[in-house]
Simulated scan of single mutants.
Amino acid sequence: MYDDLDQARQALQKDDAVGACVALMRATRTQRVLVACWESMNGMSVDEFVAFRHVLNDASGVQSFAYRGLEFAMGNRPPHHVESAYADGYKSLRIELSKPSVYDATLAYLARRGFVVPARCVEKVPWQQHEPDPLIEDVWLEIYHDPHKYSDEHRLAESLLEVAYQFSYWRGAHLLVVERMIGGKSGTGGSDGASWLREINEHRFFPELWTFRTRL
């Protein structure tokens, strides 16, 4: 999935929105498989899960460098996660943080296409988190008000939103499985378990693609 996101980013940097959409749709296929994997966990009773949970030891998928790389690539780069990535010395994460996220690349592409994207959104340093901006909502509104004129941009927006939707769907399934299996216990690897998952469940990638719809 990371490779598909990276290919989408590279396509956008070449102003190839169609190629980016193809890569993003490949990513969603992988995401649907990952969501379905939670169903295998739901086939167990809680006592069956507890019987082998100790084998997991301190392994935690959401704390892994691979998972963090996915979040960084999509644009979730909160300062404490960035600092942790540098402190832990993961070369792949440092490389990822030196690149614009997929959403950063999208906004830069839209700016080159003549849309009024605030300069601060395209000139920030790569490792910084994107902050929601109502002026970006204006850009998406312009595109959705005339989807035939802006067909490539409209398709790109829908492809991005599907990736964001599937990621949130995966998080939601994760939360439900955790609540079903361990209730209020601490999560694997010492995380806060369900409470942390509820908090992160509120996060949305590509935020203005969600919020502009209230104004459409």
Rank of each mutant, 00 (worst) to 15 (best):
S159I: 07
D138G: 12
V35L: 01
P78W: 11
W196K: 14
L141T: 03
C37G: 10
P134W: 04
M74D: 10
A23L: 07
R53L: 06
K124R: 15
G190W: 08
D6P: 00
F49M: 08
E158Q: 02
P126I: 12
R120E: 03
Q31M: 15
A157I: 02
T188H: 06
G184W: 14
V139T: 10
R155W: 00
R77E: 04
S84Q: 09
A66V: 10
G183N: 09
F115V: 00
L175Q: 00
G114P: 03
A105G: 12
R198M: 01
R77L: 08
P78K: 06
A164T: 05
A157G: 02
Y144C: 06
Q63M: 01
M1K: 12
V139E: 06
R180K: 05
A105Q: 11
L5Y: 12
V18C: 10
W127V: 10
R53V: 04
E162R: 12
G193N: 01
P132F: 09
H81T: 07
F206E: 08
V116S: 08
R112K: 15
L216N: 02
D152F: 08
S98E: 10
L216G: 11
C37A: 15
T188D: 06
L93R: 03
L141V: 07
L12D: 00
V163Q: 02
W210P: 04
Y169I: 07
Q128E: 13
V122S: 13
Q31A: 15
W140E: 02
L93C: 09
A51L: 05
E83T: 00
G43F: 03
Y109W: 09
F205E: 00
E162F: 13
F115M: 01
V18M: 04
H80T: 06
D146C: 02
A20R: 05
S191T: 14
Y103P: 00
T28F: 05
L93W: 01
E199L: 11
E48R: 05
R68T: 12
H154R: 00
E142K: 07
Q166V: 13
E83C: 09
G190T: 05
D3F: 02
F206Q: 06
C37N: 11
S195M: 15
W196M: 15
I200D: 08
M41E: 14
V46K: 06
T188P: 01
L34T: 03
E83K: 13
E199W: 14
V82N: 03
Y90H: 06
P134R: 05
M44H: 01
M44F: 00
A11P: 09
V139M: 04
T30R: 14
L176Y: 04
S45L: 11
H154N: 04
M181V: 07
W170P: 08
V177F: 03
G43A: 09
G69S: 04
Y144P: 00
E153P: 05
N57E: 12
H148G: 14
S64F: 13
Q7M: 07
G189N: 03
W127H: 07
Q31G: 13
A85I: 07
L12V: 04
R213L: 09
V116I: 14
A20C: 12
R198S: 01
V163P: 04
L197V: 03
D138I: 09
A23G: 11
H145K: 00
D133L: 04
E39Y: 10
A8N: 08
L110A: 09
